[in-house]
Amino acid sequence: MVYRALFPRDVFADLDRLQREMQQAFDLSPSIRGIARGGFPAMNVGGTPKSVEVYAFAPGVDPASLDVQIEKGVLTVAGERKAEPLPEKATAHIDERFAGRFRRVVTLPDDVDAGSATAAYRDGVLHISIARKEAAQPRRIEIQ
């Protein structure tokens, strides 16, 4: 699923984007599971010194069908989004939305504590927060 930028045709932004995409195309992929971009659900990943935050944009999914697992440092988000039933004698003019089973994986940093993960589903976004291990958090050293 790709959420494309629509407005306006900003030439400089487009050049930026083009440069970024070229760079990504030539970079060695950081994960053996291939280029992470462009699947369903779309994902944003970020971090604070204390935690790793993952946002999966999975609108219209029954939360009960979502399966979130962390195994050996790999976070898996899987689930199913059912297609809206097409009424009889109806015509589908546009059909862009994803339907079916999905699975996406994210490799987590080494310092996360998998046991501390929490997940919440709100406004169609699954937010997974995983704390970093105490020992890995930055510590200021007193100078005597």
Binding site: R4, L6, F7, D10, I94, E96
Partner: peptide, 11 residues
């Protein structure tokens, strides 16, 4: 600048 949401249209 905005993203274009994917849509389904059924008639």
């Amino acid at each position: 600048r905005a993203m274009m949401p994917p849509v389904d249209v059924v008639e």
